[in-house]
Design a protein around this nucleic acid. Sequence first.
DNA 1: TTATTACTTTATAATCGTTATAATTAGTCT
DNA 2: AGACTAATTATAACGATTATAAAGTAATAA
Lengths: 143, 143
Amino acid sequence: MSSAKINAAIDNLKEAGVRITPQRHAILEHLIQSMSHPTADEIYKALEGKFPNMSVATVYNNLRVFKEAGLVKELTYGDSSSRFDCVTTDHYHIICDSCGKIVDFHYPGLDEVESLAESVTGFEVGRHRMEIYGVCPDCKRKH
Amino acid sequence: MSSAKINAAIDNLKEAGVRITPQRHAILEHLIQSMSHPTADEIYKALEGKFPNMSVATVYNNLRVFKEAGLVKELTYGDSSSRFDCVTTDHYHIICDSCGKIVDFHYPGLDEVESLAESVTGFEVGRHRMEIYGVCPDCKRKH
DNA sequence: TTATTACTTTATAATCGTTATAATTAGTCT
DNA sequence: AGACTAATTATAACGATTATAAAGTAATAA
């Protein structure tokens, strides 16, 4: 049941001193319930019914608020627009080159790569990102 | 000596049936000689002196041509604009969170991650990308 | 309760990177 | 040289995101 997740997220925000407006609630709910990784515009369109007067800026503003609270991650791939992902546990993404579908997958952290990079470059390493690209089962079937 | 690299790249393009115009030569030369990973606009500005009438579109067009020929890779990080990297050997990048500097570093391919992802998700995996983020030595010193 | 304040939302305009268009110029081929 | 193709230029268009200013809403203090 995802309402537990939503409540947890909201408690989290409240503790951080963030006001829970109806719009914020709806955006968060949509992010958690849609198991996908929607763009700002997709969220905007999905909530058009409930909030006919909501502005795109509100979506962007609140996604930034959620990001700053550590609840949401922004996924940026080269082309087109950012996608937003509710942070639950650490995971990587595999992306279909053909249809764009994004699927989560888990893998133990690449600590080894980070520490090698650190010693070779002299950087102080904080984090890394990785994505894998390929063709999803659906698209494989369709040739 | 980088003129050897330039000539090799040009031969490569010629074989692929790409005309070598003065602009293309200059863009390629700049990409190879500047050891950095310039944006399209940086290239445009760097060549302003030699080609006062060159249009930004020419830079973008030709970067696409080079990409299609496999000579250049486009690096897309979330914010701001794409950076372009001359393909020599496979390598990853480590990026400074503070000043944005990009440094190459080598690491054996992450075949294991790819094959795990393949078996877990059912995707047919083609490639992956990875970047590491941290603070570079210069910025560490400056606190 | 009312006044004051800070925070949110809205509507709209602006910005920025990139791409499309149409006209002009330059190369290539016979 | 003439015909054809490709490349460049200048400019406009586009789409994602951000900035701005005005109006609305909630929280707090008197």
